[in-house]
């Protein structure tokens, strides 16, 4: 099992903030909108350096989404910032009609996704956003795993023409991917080559997958670990190749089982190469208030849950 080390932990939202600032320095058409969550989204540095390109819309996310669509007309590249819940479920129709169906070059940037939002509870812990956004035709859906990858993703989507949903979060996570990485939309990252099982993880669950890999290695199980930062378009080639090699798959994500990464992988495998699959995800449930680590444990989203799923899926081979 390949070793991944880190010297610091950082939140992925800060990676977004750093990426937005750099993207704005590179391209004068990059603009930012925020619905009263500038600090939470780490958009302050961008706002301070480019006040004339920052648009505070107040607590009106529907207006923000449709406005962003309008702002593309004339060549601007709007990045909208709010919590994942308010960037998806609250404004689904605005995103669907004004952005996706109208094919506008809007980057919907969403923080505090999932259970790791913690104490604010289920009203804010959206666990359905990946599903909603990936169902929209033409929408790219990205869920990076650490600070560096989120920063790289933010820079990459500024260069990409078309609507994008970028999902990130609040907790501090190990920063283990390279600072100078090239982020290729739709291309999976191989973290560890293995022979016995494929673990496909996204977002905060990628680090848990790596930790699970070490536990499995101690148990004599050689896990292949893939970081899927782009959920749509899904890297079908990488997944099929790995599933063919290992013969069984476990997916891991901080999202509902319905509609998430696991669903996408299951659909792909069922159609192209039926393979035993287990999913580590929230099982048709809302979250609740609590310390993020305890919530992840209660709802079955830890390295231990990944290990259990691997043991289960291997038996099904």
């Amino acid at each position: 099992m390949k070793k991944y080390t880190y010297t610091e932990t950082k939140d992925t939202r800060s990676g977004f903030g750093a990426g937005l600032l750099e993207a704005a320095q590179k391209n004068e058409n990059v603009i930012g909108l925020c619905a009263d969550l500038t600090g939470s989204l780490k958009m302050n540095a961008f706002e301070n350096e480019f006040p004339e390109r920052f648009f505070q819309v107040g607590i009106s996310e529907a207006n923000m989404m449709s406005m962003a669509a309008g702002m593309t007309i004339g060549g601007k590249i709007p990045f909208t910032g709010t919590f994942a819940n308010f960037a998806t479920s609250r404004v689904y129709d605005q995103v669907r009609q004004s952005i996706a169906y109208s094919n506008k070059n809007v980057k919907i940037c969403a923080s505090h996704a999932g259970l790791t939002l913690g104490e604010d509870g289920a009203t804010h812990q959206v666990l359905e956003d990946i599903g909603m956004m990936k169902m929209l035709p033409g929408m790219v859906v990205i869920n990076p795993c650490d600070y560096n990858q989120t920063k790289a993703a933010t820079l990459a989507i500024a260069e990409y023409e078309g609507p994008v949903y970028l999902r990130f979060g609040r907790p501090k996570m190990p920063v283990f991917t390279p600072a100078d990485q090239e982020f290729k939309i739709g291309e999976a990252v191989m973290l560890n080559e293995g022979a016995d099982v494929t673990i496909i993880a996204t977002g905060h669950l990628v680090w848990e997958a790596i930790e699970a890999g070490h536990i499995l290695a101690d148990m004599g199980i050689d896990a292949e670990i893939i970081n899927i930062h782009t959920i749509k378009p899904l890297d079908a080639e990488a997944i099929l190749k790995s599933a063919e090699k290992t013969g069984c798959v476990v997916t891991a994500e901080e999202h509902q089982m319905n509609g998430g990464l696991g669903d996408g992988v299951a659909q792909l495998l069922a159609r192209k190469n039926p393979t035993p699959l287990e999913m580590v995800a929230v099982n048709d449930s809302f979250g609740e208030s609590g310390i993020p680590a305890l919530l992840m444990e209660k709802y079955g989203l830890t390295r231990t849950d990944i290990v259990k799923s691997v043991e289960k899926v291997i038996k099904r081979k």
Binding site: A62, S66, G70, I73, R96, Q97
Partner: peptide
Amino acid sequence: RIASGSLGQGMSVAAGAAVT
């Protein structure tokens, strides 16, 4: 320049285009 049909979105779109 924009899809419309689901009501209520056009003033936001127009305001956005005006800001640009």
